[in-house]
Amino acid sequence: MSVKVSMKVNGKPVSAEVEERTLLVTLIREHLRLTGTHVGCDTAQCGACTVQMNGNVVKSCSMLAMQAEGADVRTIESVAAADGTLHPMQAAFKEHHGLQCGFCTPGMVMNAIDFAKKNPGASEHEVREALEGNLCRCTGYHNIVKAIMAGSKAMAGAK
């Protein structure tokens, strides 16, 4: 059985006929071909699928597309400026070598931006705790933490 689902993704209205069992991440990756959002696990731990929904970050592999009906969804593809300039958090990840293979990176960046917005001036300890839902196997988190601290500062400065 297929159903119609409609929402805004990266500012544009989209609608699709999907199977009811379609996950939000499947809609994003397979139907909208926005492949920057990744799937790294099937038990809601790795966070590679993290997207923003209605101003908060969620794991798009852990919800049905239907649960996002009418929502405002933003993926990694919408983070940089229209002219391609990196968002301060993305720039901080680059500057501090907060990524290696790049697979966990979109989820990390989505979570980091949301966290920094809501928790300006957070401590290293708080940053590490905020990454509980994002697994990285390459970086040992050291440079991700550094990047988020710096990106957070840059975001506050850019306001």
Binding site: L99, G102, F103
Partner: peptide
């Protein structure tokens, strides 16, 4: 030197095997 590959990974433009359809 900052990494040349980072831009595509940071913007979701990396192409991993499952991204190839």
């Amino acid at each position: 030197v900052q990494r040349k590959e980072d831009y595509r990974f940071l913007t979701g433009a990396g192409q991993y095997t499952d991204d190839v359809t």
